[in-house]
C-alpha cells in the first residue's frame, strides 16, 4: 500500500501549483480554474486521510466540497460574464475602479 505522506505531498504540490496560477495569471477564467485545482488538491488530502483512518467521513466531506465547488464555479462564471459585458476584458488588472 502507498504511504499516506506520498498522497499528502502530492496534494501539497498540486495546491502550490494552484496558488501560483492564481498569482501569475491575468485571466479571470484561468484564475477560477486554478482555484478548482486547489480545491481538488484538498479533496485528495481528505480522501487519503479517510483511507488511512478507515472512516467514511472524509469521503462525505469531499462530496460537500464538490457541491460548494460547483456552486462557486457557477457564481464565479456568472460574475465573469457580467464583468465582461461591462468592461470587455478578463484582465483583473483592468478592474481597478476602486483602487486607491
Amino acid at each position: 500500500m502507498v504511504p499516506l505522506d506520498y498522497y499528502l505531498f502530492l496534494s501539497g504540490v498540486l495546491f502550490a501549483i494552484g496558488v501560483v496560477g492564481v498569482v501569475i495569471r491575468r485571466n479571470l477564467i484561468v484564475i477560477l480554474m486554478s482555484i478548482e485545482l486547489m480545491l481538488n488538491a484538498v479533496n485528495l488530502t481528505f480522501i487519503a486521510f479517510a483511507r488511512s483512518l478507515g472512516s467514511m467521513e472524509g469521503q462525505v466531506i469531499v462530496f460537500f466540497v464538490m457541491t460548494v465547488a460547483a456552486a462557486e464555479a457557477v457564481i464565479g462564471l456568472a460574475i465573469i460574464i457580467s464583468i465582461f459585458r461591462h468592461r470587455q476584458t478578463l484582465d483583473p488588472q483592468e478592474m481597478q475602479l476602486l483602487r486607491w
Partner: peptide
C-alpha cells in the same frame, strides 16, 4: 510563493509519524 508553500508542506510532512502512514 509556490516554492515556499512546497517547502512548508515538505517540512510539515516530515513530522508525520511513520505508523500513521500505514492505513487502517
Amino acid at each position: 510563493a509556490g516554492l515556499l508553500l512546497v517547502f512548508e508542506f515538505a517540512d510539515f510532512l516530515s513530522d508525520i509519524p511513520r505508523q500513521a502512514a500505514q492505513g487502517a
